[in-house]
Design a protein around this nucleic acid. Structure first.
Lengths: 194, 194
DNA sequence: AGCATAAGCGGACCATGGTCCAGTTACCGA
DNA sequence: TCGGTAACTGGACCATGGTCCGCTTATGCT
């Protein structure tokens, strides 16, 4: 099975690599300082000491850059899913792994919701590399837990409450706390797979 | 209970009313002709024979305008929910009404997904007036069907697969047909409320 | 009818995401 | 070491969503 991973090109020119790291740390810094929605692409390019064309050549657009900033934690999550201790990693029954996955995602959202919303805005997130990994992971667990059901459809159902815009709504407008979202998710998985 | 409705102000100057309808029909026409993503706000203002300032004064932003274009069909849906024949309207058991609601929403998405995605993009859709009505409607049915559950959370779960971006993904990228989405939704409701 | 006033109007203006391409430079093979 | 080349760079440029504010006009009151 060939998991898509985010890594870099096989060969990258030294100056290009330097610029990439400069851009990424500039973006991280500015996002942290003033929030992502108050940070223009111009400002990131300036902070990185790089031209705007370079920035867009490397990252394509704002959403992709936002996602790239989260690359580290995404890598870590993916690693835990494949090789970490149960119930997140292999070894636990599928239901429990699904719930653990949901909780891990909710924790990640709690930390990075602003950036993730930005990534979602252009519509690119839903079919991005990390999301495809999540989808595949969940799909396999679902098929294992309930071979009869329409796993491909249920995947989308179970990913819904883990999408940034819904999370933000629940958290900030509906004012539900994180514990309630985790309980709700576990209950949902239980209802769907019982 | 006070349902938010989309209607107009109590008093509206005649010239303003004229401009509003001009803008709405210009938008409808251009959306239909060339698709919403190829229609700039400038173009709509020009087609309506109105200044850009007027357009934005009346509708605030692109997402709101998109939503206003769908006002008619939204009104119709709301009316069916409150006063139409069962199972969409009152009279059927809550489970069936929820499924009927889901199917009606999926039909609406099939017709207007492009416009709805646009409305969603700015993040405004999730807390818009129509969405609040849908949420309230579903919440009441859910509470009736399952007084024990966390209705407020489950509402978001059941609205997820009815959100434009997920619908588009399932329909165009995952290539599921409309019937499959309806079956999946009915099955989901059954699993959650069984 | 005439006036006062608040509402409405429109286009100049701004910020920003994204594109383009002429010039530059790192890399590789000889 | 050196030349060819493909990749990289950066900032001028464009399109477009959205704001602002001085001017216009409908409306209601007398």
């Amino acid at each position: 099975m060939d998991l898509p991973v985010i890594g870099e090109q096989p060969s990258e020119r030294a100056d290009a690599a330097l610029n990439r790291t400069r851009i990424l740390s500039a973006a991280k810094k500015l996002f942290a300082e003033r929030g992502i929605s108050c940070t223009s692409m111009d400002a990131i390019a300036a902070e990185a000491g790089v031209g705007k064309g370079t920035l867009f050549r490397r990252f394509g657009d704002r959403a992709t850059l936002a996602l790239a900033v989260l690359d580290d934690s995404e890598r870590e999550l993916q690693d835990d899913l494949l090789r970490g201790p149960p119930p997140l990693g292999p070894g636990a029954p599928p239901c429990e792994r699904i719930i653990a996955f949901g909780e891990a995602m909710l924790d990640a959202l709690e930390l990075n919701s602003e950036i993730l919303v930005e990534a979602e805005r252009r519509g690119g997130l839903i079919d991005s590399a990390p999301r495809r990994v999540h989808r595949l992971h969940l799909r396999n667990l679902l098929a294992e837990a309930d071979p009869e059901g329409d796993s491909d459809y249920l995947v989308d159902v179970l990913l819904g409450p883990l999408s940034p815009s819904i999370f933000i709504f629940e958290r900030e407008i509906a004012e539900m706390d994180l514990g309630r979202l985790k309980d709700g998710y576990a209950d949902l998985v239980d209802r769907v797979l019982r």
